[in-house]
Design a protein around this nucleic acid. Structure first.
Lengths: 346, 346
DNA sequence: TTGAAAGCGCTAACAT
DNA sequence: ATGTTAGCGCTTTCAA
C-alpha cells in the first residue's frame, strides 16, 4: 500500500526518479526492481521486462549514495601516489583507472608529495570513504594500514613492500638493476660516481641507493650521495653544487626521471658535456628520454605490467582471497643509449 | 531512551563507532554530537568538550557514506581529461587535487581518450555519484551537460567553451597565439608550413588549427594539415609520411607536447635536422622542452593559473552564485628557443 | 518467485 | 540550547 500512501504521482514529483517510482510504474515492489537492476536471476521474465521498461521510461538511475550506504562500500579504488605530475605515476594512475573502470569502479586520486603525514591523511580519508581497495605507492612510514585492515579494505603497495602491515606488494628489482647499472659505469673506468636521489629510507629510491652502494663498495670506491628530493629543481641545485666541487663526479646515477631532468640541466649549465665530461644513467624511461641530446641511458620499469598486477591483487582480495600476502618482483630493463658513454660494451 | 533500548554496550559492539555510540558515552543526543562535529556554534561549551572527548576516546570517524546520502552529495570534485599521461593534464589534475583537498573535497579522475562517448559516460557517472562539481576538459560533443545542470552540479570547462550547455569556461587564447607563432615562421621565410594536429573540431586543438589556418591564409600560402590523434606515435607516423612527400614541409606547427615528441622523432629518423631542415614550434611547455636538441620553441599555457581559476569557478557556484556563465581567457606565452630557427628575430 | 519491512548512519526539521 | 524523530534511497533478510 506504500504506493497509495505516497500522495504524489510520479509525474509531479520533482527530481530524479527513485526506485519506488519505478516500482509503482511497473506495479511491482521495490525489492523486485532492485533484483532486476542487480541481475538477480530468480525473477519472472515478464516482471523483468516491465521493470526495465519503467526504468527506462523514467530515465531512472540508481542513487549511488543510497546504494553505498546500504552496502557499506563505495565502488571506488583509491590510488595514492607521491606526485601525479611524475610521468611514472601518471602512467600508473592511467592503468589503474582503465582497469577499475572495467570493473565498475571509479578512481580517487591522492598526491602525497612524498610526505608521510599526507600519506597517512590520504589513507585515513580513503578509509572514511570506505573505498573498495587501495593502490598505494608508499612514501613515508606505514601510517594507517592497520586501520584499513580492520575495515577489510584490501591494500596493495606498488614499488615498495610495507613493513608492519602485511599487504600484497608489486615491486621492481631496484637493488639488482641499479647495482648492475653502476657496475657498468665502474667497468667503463669511472672511479667517481655520484648517486642523485633523496635521503629517504622509505621508498623505491632507497632500494636504488642500496644497489648503487653495493656496487660502489664491491669495487672499493668511495660513495657520493647527493639529494634531490625526487624533484627536478632540487636535483639541479644539488648536481650544480656537486659539479663545482674540487673533484667533481665523472658519472651520475640518477634515481628517477624528474631528477634526471634537473641533473642534465645542471650539467649543461655547468658547460659540461654528456657523456664526455659526465656520464649519466637514470631510472625511468619517460617518452622524452631518447630524444635528449645525447639520448638517455635508462633503467626502464615495466610500470604498466606492475600497475595491472596491482589491480589484479585488489580484485583477488575483493573476491575473498584470504591467503598470505604476496610480493611480486618485476625486473627493470637497462636500455643503453648514449648518455652513459659505454655503448660499446656488451 | 534510545540509549536504553539499544541492548548492546559500546564496548561489545563490533565495527567502527557510530554517532550514537558517541552520544551515549557523552550522555547527549545524536543531534548534539552532529552539531559539535559540524561546527554548529550554538552548543554549550561543556557538552562540546564531552562530545569531543567521547569521540576521540572511541576513535570515532563519521561515516561519510551515511553523510553523503543524507546531504545528497559527495564532497568530491570530478575531473574529466582526455589523457592523464599527457603532462599538460597531469598538471591540471595536480592543481585541482591540491585545491580541492583544501576545500575538504576528494578528486575523482576520468580519462576520456579524446572519445566523446567515453566523455558522456564519465559525465553520467559523475552525475550518478552526485559529485559537488566537475572540471571538464572537453573532447567530443557536449553530451550530458544538461543532465548535470538539472542536478545543480556546477561544471566548468577548461580549454574550450561548451556550445549548448552554458557553463563557466577557462580558455587559452589559442587562435591568436598559434596565428602569431605561424606568422613568425612565415616571416622567417618559410612557405611550406605544416600543422600537426588531429582532425577534431571539438577541442583546443581545433582552435590552434584555426590560428594556423588564419596565418597561412593571410600570407596566401597553402595549408598542410596532418593528423596525429593528439598522441606521440600517430604523430610520428604522420610526420614521417609528410617528410617523404615530394615537397616536404620546411616547418612544423605542432598542436601539443605529445605530438611534438612524435614529430621530432620522425624528423630525426628521417635524417633531417632541426631547425636547419625543419623548423618546429609546439604548443605546451613540458619540463623536457628546453633539454631537447635543439631546445624546443613553444607556446606555453598558464596551466596552473587556468586550473586554479577553474576550481574558483566551482567554488563560486557551490556558494550559490547564479550569475551568467563567464569565459575567462588566458594568454599563451611564446618561448623562443632554437627549434624554430628564428631566434634572431625580435 | 514476490512483497513487506527493517535498517545502513547521518542530518535537519521540529519540538521542547 | 538540546532532544526527538523522520527520513535520505537503497539492499536484503524474512515471510508468504
Amino acid at each position: 500500500m506504500a504506493q497509495l500512501l505516497d500522495g504524489t504521482s510520479p509525474e509531479t514529483r520533482p527530481g530524479p526518479a527513485r526506485i519506488l517510482d519505478v516500482a509503482e510504474l511497473a506495479s511491482v515492489s521495490v525489492a523486485t526492481v532492485s533484483r532486476v537492476l542487480n541481475g538477480d536471476s530468480r525473477v519472472n521474465h515478464e516482471l523483468r521486462e516491465r521493470v526495465l521498461a519503467s526504468a527506462s521510461q523514467l530515465g531512472y538511475r540508481p542513487n549511488r549514495l543510497a546504494r553505498n550506504l546500504r552496502r557499506r562500500q563505495m565502488d571506488v579504488i583509491g590510488i595514492v601516489v607521491p606526485d601525479i605530475e611524475n610521468p611514472h605515476f601518471a602512467a600508473m594512475v592511467r592503468v589503474v583507472e582503465a582497469i577499475a573502470l572495467g570493473l565498475g569502479h571509479r578512481v580517487l586520486v591522492c598526491n602525497t608529495d612524498e610526505d608521510g603525514d599526507r600519506q597517512a591523511a590520504c589513507l585515513q580519508m580513503l578509509a572514511d570513504e570506505r573505498v573498495s581497495g587501495i593502490v598505494l605507492s608508499p612514501s613515508g612510514p606505514d601510517g594507517g594500514i592497520d586501520h584499513l585492515r580492520d575495515l577489510a579494505i584490501p591494500v596493495v603497495t606498488i614499488e615498495r613492500a610495507l613493513r608492519n602491515g602485511p599487504a600484497d606488494a608489486v615491486v621492481a628489482d631496484n637493488v639488482a638493476a641499479v647495482r648492475a647499472a653502476t657496475r657498468r659505469l665502474i667497468d667503463a673506468g669511472h672511479t667517481n660516481i655520484a648517486f642523485v636521489g633523496g635521503y629517504s629510507r622509505v621508498n623505491a629510491i632507497s632500494m636504488r641507493q642500496r644497489g648503487y652502494l653495493t656496487a660502489i663498495e664491491e669495487a672499493g670506491l668511495a660513495p657520493v650521495l647527493i639529494g634531490g628530493q625526487f624533484l627536478c629543481d632540487p636535483a639541479e641545485v644539488a648536481v650544480t653544487a656537486l659539479l663545482r666541487a674540487k673533484r667533481p663526479a665523472s658519472a651520475l646515477v640518477v634515481a628517477n626521471n624528474l631528477m634526471a631532468l634537473g641533473a642534465i640541466r645542471a650539467v649543461r649549465r655547468a658547460g659540461l658535456r654528456i657523456p664526455g665530461d659526465v656520464a649519466v644513467i637514470a631510472v625511468d624511461d619517460p617518452p622524452w628520454a631518447e630524444l635528449l641530446d645525447p639520448p638517455l641511458t635508462v633503467l626502464a620499469q615495466p610500470i604498466h605490467a606492475m600497475a595491472t598486477r596491482a589491480v589484479e591483487f585488489i580484485v583477488r582480495r575483493l573476491g575473498g582471497d584470504q591467503s598470505p600476502p604476496v610480493h611480486d618482483v618485476f625486473p627493470l630493463k637497462l636500455i643503453v643509449r648514449r648518455s652513459c658513454g659505454t655503448g660499446h660494451l656488451p
